[in-house]
Amino acid sequence: MKKLKFHYNMTIEFTSPISNHNFKLKCLPKSGSRQTVSELNFEITPNVKLSDGTDGFGNLTRYGNISEEHTLFGVNVEGVCEVNGGFYDEDVNPSMLGLFKVQTPLTKSGEALTEFGNRLSLPEGDNLTKSRYIMHEVYKHFEYVPKATGIATSAEESFALGKGVCQDYSQSMLSICRSMGIPCRYVTGLLMGEGETHAWAEIYSNGKWYGLDPTNDVEVSENHIVISTGRDSADCSINRGIFRGNGTQSQKIYVKVEEVHDTNSNAG
């Protein structure tokens, strides 16, 4: 078990004022058998009254409306999360797993992914063994290049390009796993260190979910905090909003995760 202190900050600046801004955030890690959120501070700019809810996947949502004109929208989340490890049991209805076997428009394979999948010689074994192999192959295929792809880029598009970021690695891996009949889902989360939000895949094997991080070719460990899970990146958008106004927007994201050591424990 590791105790992680996390900080997520997002600011969006608009070149001209916007109003009637409706938004829905999925930026709060939830507690469960994998991790426990023990401290949480949340701030929003401009400060408005918000509602809390959950989505169809059980992710925490926070949403509201800013009717006044504003040129800056900011979200700041700080807290502490105790992470038990990379794989976990979850009270998952086995009949729900079918949802994670179906391709979505973002994971649907085209020529590049299909051909790649056909060439793979999967090892014998359980879903985890096969998925580890797929992860490694996806990792080798991609070159990590920021800005080569966008949030709407599909797995097939990025895979054909051979370039991308964590979203592209993860969705390509999901696409291949699903074509092999392995139930798997997309994860948005935070990774130890400083930078941006991260994404990886979770695959279902022997009654448990296992996190596999194809961008780093590693199994997910106590260094990852899960924020949300879904079929693809669209299910896990951190911020979804609509507003009235023209002009352009620029978004900045800052993430920091570090381990905290309780001064009183581990005395021996």
Binding site: D55, G56, F57, L99, R231
Partner: peptide, 8 residues
């Protein structure tokens, strides 16, 4: 099928 309806 709409996953949003899960839990509604």
């Amino acid at each position: 099928y709409m996953p949003q309806m899960e839990g509604a």
